[in-house]
Write a protein that binds this DNA or RNA. Structure first.
Length: 538
DNA sequence: CGTTTTTGACCTGCGC
DNA sequence: GCGCAGGTCAAAAACG
């Protein structure tokens, strides 16, 4: 910092033509002194800022270490308690891990009635976990396999259990049809229902996301000769989560998987990767739709804005284009849909980091948002989403260079994790609503989750300060996950749970958790060029 | 024999 | 009201 200040002085001196010692005029001398004085004061300011930043960095490191210690303590508690009381029947994921993570699509996880009868010990332990701030805003919890999820927040306890199932899936199905008592809830549910569409190149019939699915229907949809398969989550009997799998008509190697609903049960760790991804995406979508539907979306719709952040370029595309790209086979999406395009993008984006596009259709009833994480490199997949092969280090990503100043250790094994976190970084930096969601998550994690639902703009400044802390989402959200290669669903399906692979690299190596975290300081308001006003103006 | 998949029928929402 | 399309149900078949 101080060196940069000296450089600034020199630069200014050059600007004023003061580098020559032959200037001898008194007025020029005065000017020179004036400039030097101002430069000195500027240097002082820079030093002050440098000192503040150092203090902030120290505090962040302390917080990070304390969080890590608490996390490890909880892990040890769980393992020890499991060893002492482990007599429960083994679940089919016992091969993987005893930890289950419940993730919710940005909403309160709904619980079946029977799970309200969870034991007091489970609740007490859960309270411990809540106190340990392991609950993200995305409702990620680490639980033992023998535990069931109880309502973790007062807001959830207020909810009627009868309404819970209907909140996450069409109430007309979960709740008996023709039941007028639930019409209002149905409307709310419909308004809040979000779909996360994942496009990935996959030759197998379906991609493995860690969950257990049962096919309950198949239909030929209009405009696509490839049938659309309907799957239902069978991890829990009452889980409302469903997914649709369909191949792209234009490129049958592309598998389009649409997730809908919220898991109301603990997830196998192998499923948390996809769940966390879809959770974040859906949360972003829901958060964005809540504002866009009030008129803000029209602004975004009309724009093809591009912002740059530290060399990262993000662009917003209009919906027509996005629709052509992401919804070639269907009419306007009936529900708010966010698309994670993890395929090779035929369009040449100016950013080497893929494309993030958020768009809202004027024809669709609900907004549609697209996240394109595709590589511009032909026939390449992000190493985190592939055919089950984690090609760490086989492909170079330019964004890693951007982080070299921040990441002292740039191991190849951490490359995929960087991809994930970079993806999140881009998404957060590009979309204020996503920032809000993530900020809420962090806020709940740091501040004890007391105000998890408060995502208004007044608190955004505080949240952005939270971003300045060294929190590694890739590790936090998928901690203790590992590869799901052992979870092959009858030998078919893509082992595309990319995030498991990367998280396995972190979980298996405990020391990796001590790696420098992502520079979330880029989200500080000072360095955030893409603030709300700019987006809303455009 | 239990679970999963298949597939035709049925239901619902929407546009005309 | 009718037709269409998407989504779901449920019985039968297939599978392990």
């Amino acid at each position: 910092m101080s060196s940069s200040g000296a450089a600034a002085i020199e630069e200014r001196a050059v600007q004023f033509g003061l580098t020559s010692r032959e200037d001898s005029g008194s007025s020029q001398e005065a000017k020179k002194e004036e400039v030097i004085e101002s430069a000195k004061s500027e240097t002082g300011d820079v030093r002050e800022e440098n000192h503040r930043l150092k203090m902030m960095l120290e505090r962040i490191e302390k917080d990070y270490q304390s969080l890590q210690l608490r996390f490890f303590d909880i892990l040890q508690q769980e393992t020890s308690s499991k060893q002492s009381t482990d007599s429960a029947p083994s679940h089919d994921e016992t091969e993987e891990s005893n930890e289950l993570v419940s993730l919710c699509l940005g909403r309160s996880p709904s619980e079946p009635k029977k799970e309200d009868k969870s034991t007091n010990s489970a609740k007490s332990r859960e309270n411990e976990e809540l106190k340990a701030n392991l609950t993200l805003g995305l409702d990620s919890k680490i639980l033992t396999s023998t535990e069931t999820v109880s309502n973790p927040s007062p807001a959830e306890s207020v909810e009627e259990p009868k309404e819970e199932a209907g909140e996450t899936w069409p109430p007309s199905k979960v709740i008996p049809k023709r039941n007028g008592d639930h019409d209002e809830a149905a409307q709310q549910s419909q308004a809040k229902r979000a779909r996360v569409c994942v496009r990935v190149r996959c030759e197998t019939p379906t991609m493995i996301d860690g969950c257990q699915w049962r096919k309950y229907g198949q239909k030929i949809s209009k405009g696509n000769p490839c049938p659309r398969a309907y799957y239902r989550c069978t991890v829990a009997p009452l889980c409302p989560v469903r997914k649709q799998v369909q191949r792209c008509a234009e490129d049958t190697s592309i598998l389009i998987t649409t997730y809908e609903g919220t898991h109301n049960h603990p997830l196998p760790v192998s499923a948390t990767a996809m769940a966390s991804t879809t959770s974040a995406a859906a949360s972003m979508l829901l958060s964005g739709s809540s504002t866009s539907q009030e008129g803000l979306g029209s602004h975004i719709n009309a724009t093809s804005a591009r912002t740059e952040l530290n060399g990262l370029s993000f662009s917003l595309h209009d919906h027509l284009r996005a629709k052509q790209i992401y919804f070639p086979n269907s009419s306007s999406p009936a529900f708010p849909t966010i698309t994670l395009d993890l395929t090779t993008s035929p369009s040449t984006s100016t950013t080497p980091f893929g494309r993030f596009s958020s768009s809202f259709s004027s024809t669709s009833r609900y907004p549609s948002t697209s996240l394109n994480f595709s590589s511009t490199e032909p026939n390449s997949l992000p190493p985190i989403w592939g055919n089950g092969l984690h090609n760490y280090g086989t492909r170079s990503y330019n964004h890693q260079q951007l982080y070299q100043s921040f990441m002292e250790k740039n191991h190849q094994a951490a490359a995929s994790q960087q991809v994930l976190t970079d993806t999140l970084t881009k998404a957060i930096a590009s979309d204020p609503s996503f920032r809000t969601v993530i900020a809420t998550a962090i806020s709940s994690m740091i501040g004890g989750g007391g105000s998890a639902n408060a995502n208004n703009r007044n608190q955004r400044a505080g949240y952005q300060n939270c971003f300045g802390q060294n929190l590694n989402f890739g590790e936090t959200m998928t901690t203790s996950a590992f590869s799901i290669n052992s979870l092959s669903q009858n030998g078919k399906g893509c082992a595309s749970s990319c995030f498991n692979g990367l998280s396995s690299s972190t979980s298996q190596k405990g020391s990796s958790q001590l790696q420098p975290a992502l520079p979330f300081s880029v989200f500080n308001s000072a360095s955030m060029p893409n603030n709300d006003n700019e987006e809303h103006k455009s």
